[in-house]
């Protein structure tokens, strides 16, 4: 009897130890803890940057809680204009916003000229507003498949990026279409825009030419109004000095010195490049954004302060250059 009890206790003990080992194994192997993903898609090693490159810090933000932010621009007085769906807001110097205009369809892009006219891009129409809020013009000379994604206004002409048609429309400032730029043309060495999803930005250079992002090729291309492609640069890479994925950079803006500010999706980061394409500074890294944030529209004021539209956090985030100690 004593022997049987002894055997029973031993079996119980062995079972208990076995169970403990099993649970220990499952916890440490991740099958119970469940946090380990053996198939993790890991881009963590690309999320950082050498601290010597980080020349900017976030200095302020403007909240738009509950608003689906879509576009921003700055006028010649450095006043911010922000679109959220069909609503356009003006922001005063105290960063107070007030509703300015409501459009019929969602606003996709904004731009201003030296007289304060505001150009509003809807899906396939450009509306031009006087600073007093009255509508001056409506341009609708776009192809059926147009999806307007960016506007840049020069002294006497306007460039409009159209992701749906994969061209840049070149207008005079009365809204007369002059020509279309960037269509694939092997004879003129024009590669054609590769735009897998509707991210297609441009900005105007001081000489009146236009820099256009070719997002599927990760390049910046410089076109003259004649349509000639005169310069390009770009680097495909997930590393800090390159662009990756199918449509990057998603947005660009130009500093007063003619440098490019860029934003990306996938690896949410803001960077500054020289006109020739050399990485100069990192403004913000993925850790400063919610994972999966897309649509980081950009603007730069006359002092070089960078404004970033963050649709995920529903705010405009302002980045200034750090003091050099």
């Amino acid at each position: 009897m004593q022997n049987r009890n002894h055997i029973f206790s031993s079996i119980t003990l062995i079972a208990a130890v076995g169970l403990l080992i099993f649970y220990g194994f499952t916890i440490f192997s991740g099958r119970s803890g469940r946090d380990e993903n053996p198939f993790e898609y890991d881009v963590d090693s690309f999320k950082g940057a050498d601290s010597s490159l980080i020349h900017y810090a976030e200095v302020q933000s403007i909240d738009f809680e509950g608003k689906k932010l879509t576009a921003l621009t700055l006028n010649f007085k450095d006043e911010l204009i922000v679109a959220a769906g069909r609503e356009i807001f003006r922001i005063d110097s105290m960063f107070q916003s007030s509703l300015w205009i409501t459009t019929q369809y969602p606003v996709r892009c904004l731009a201003t000229d030296i007289e304060g006219l505001v150009y509003v891009g809807l899906e396939n129409i450009v509306l031009v507003y006087h600073p007093d809020g009255s509508k001056q013009a409506e341009w609708d000379d776009f192809p059926r498949q147009a999806i307007l994604t960016s506007i840049a206004v020069g002294d006497s002409h306007v460039y409009v990026a159209d992701a749906g048609s994969r061209v840049v429309h070149y207008f005079n400032n009365s809204g007369k279409l002059i020509t279309r730029l960037g269509e694939k043309d092997p004879v003129r060495n024009i590669p054609g825009f590769v735009i897998p999803s509707p991210y297609f930005d441009l900005c105007i250079a001081k000489n009146g030419s236009v820099w256009v992002v070719n997002p599927g090729r990760h390049t910046f291309e410089n076109y003259l109004p004649s349509g000639d492609l005169v310069a390009q640069w770009g680097k495909t890479s997930m590393r800090i000095d390159g662009f990756s994925g199918c449509c990057n950079p998603t947005h660009i803006a130009m500093t007063p010195q003619g440098e490019f500010v860029t934003s990306e999706k996938g690896l949410e980061r803001i960077k500054v490049y020289s006109p020739a394409g050399q990485l100069l500074s990192v403004v913000a890294l993925p850790e400063q954004f919610d994972e999966g944030t897309v649509g980081l529209d950009l603007a730069v004021d006359s002092k070089g302060v960078i404004y970033v539209l963050d649709p995920s956090r529903e705010r405009i985030r302002i980045f200034g250059k750090k003091e050099v100690s």
Binding site: K68, L69, T70, A71, L72, T73, G85, P106, R108, C109, L110, A111, G121, E123, I147, L148, T149, S150, I151, A163, S197, P198, Y199, F200, D201, H251, I252, A253, V294, G295, D297, L298, A299, L309, P311
Partner: peptide
């Protein structure tokens, strides 16, 4: 400059 995150899925499609 545009933010397509606001676009409807229908538009994207």
């Amino acid at each position: 400059m545009e933010n397509p995150s606001n676009n409807s899925k229908v538009t994207r499609r």
